[in-house]
Computed example of a mutant assay.
Amino acid sequence: MTDDVRNVRDALSTITEYWQPHRLTSINDYDVKVVKLHGEFVWHTHPDTDELFMVVSGELTIQLRDRDVILGPNDVFVVPQGVEHCPRATGEVHALLFEPKGTVNTGDAGGDMTSELREFA
């Protein structure tokens, strides 16, 4: 990982596919990822880690089995480890994710939406 300055907006402007996280930088054992979201993801859990969402633009709904959490720009929400959730965006959302290195985007669900973490040049 480089020690260069990274710009969140510039990084997001290069992403062309939804639900494909890109590593912006790393800190200790965590990745800071940028991602564009649209539509509904898959229900899944991360059995061994929490997952932090920070919305940069748009409105993101984190569906939980007992409620929906709605995030707007600059809102942050942590999904506790082991809690089943399903992100949904009716319009385009730009977001940051903070997760331990190696965390798979679909958690324990797997499937077609599983993405390899992408790197910026």
Rank of each mutant, 00 (worst) to 15 (best):
H44Q: 07
V93L: 11
T106M: 04
Q20H: 09
T45W: 08
D108T: 01
E116Q: 14
V35K: 01
E116S: 13
V76N: 09
T45C: 09
P100C: 07
Q63S: 14
P47Q: 13
R65K: 14
N105F: 00
N7M: 10
L71C: 04
P87L: 01
V56Q: 06
T49Q: 12
I15G: 00
R6S: 04
R67V: 14
N74A: 15
L96I: 14
E59W: 14
M54V: 14
D108W: 02
E17T: 03
S13E: 09
G58E: 06
L97E: 00
R118N: 08
Q81D: 04
E99D: 12
D4C: 12
G39V: 14
D75E: 09
G72Q: 10
P100G: 10
T2M: 13
K36P: 00
R9F: 09
R118H: 12
T2L: 12
A95V: 09
D48K: 15
E84V: 07
V83N: 02
H38P: 01
S13V: 03
R65Q: 11
V76I: 15
H46L: 03
F41D: 00
D29M: 10
L117A: 10
T106P: 02
P47T: 07
H85A: 02
I15V: 07
M1K: 09
V55G: 02
D4W: 14
A95S: 07
R6H: 11
L96M: 13
H22V: 02
G39L: 10
T45A: 10
D10M: 13
T61A: 06
F53M: 01
D66V: 11
H46V: 02
I15F: 01
E116L: 13
A89M: 02
D50N: 07
G107Y: 00
E99H: 11
T90A: 15
I62K: 06
G91D: 15
L71N: 01
S57E: 13
R65N: 10
A121I: 08
D66S: 10
A11S: 14
T2A: 14
F120E: 02
P47C: 10
R23F: 06
L71S: 02
H94D: 09
T14E: 12
D50W: 05
H94V: 08
D66Q: 12
L60R: 02
E84K: 06
T2R: 14
R6M: 08
E59N: 11
V32W: 03
R67C: 12
D66K: 13
T14R: 11
H22C: 11
S26H: 10
D108C: 02
D10F: 15
T103C: 03
V8M: 04
Q20L: 03
W43D: 11
L97W: 02
D10S: 15
V83Q: 06
E119D: 13
L71T: 00
D68Q: 10
E84H: 05
D68I: 07
N7C: 14
P47S: 13
T106N: 04
R118W: 09
V83R: 01
L37I: 15
V69L: 09
L64N: 07
E51W: 06
H38M: 08
H22M: 10
E84W: 07
F53V: 00
N74F: 15
T106L: 05
D4G: 12
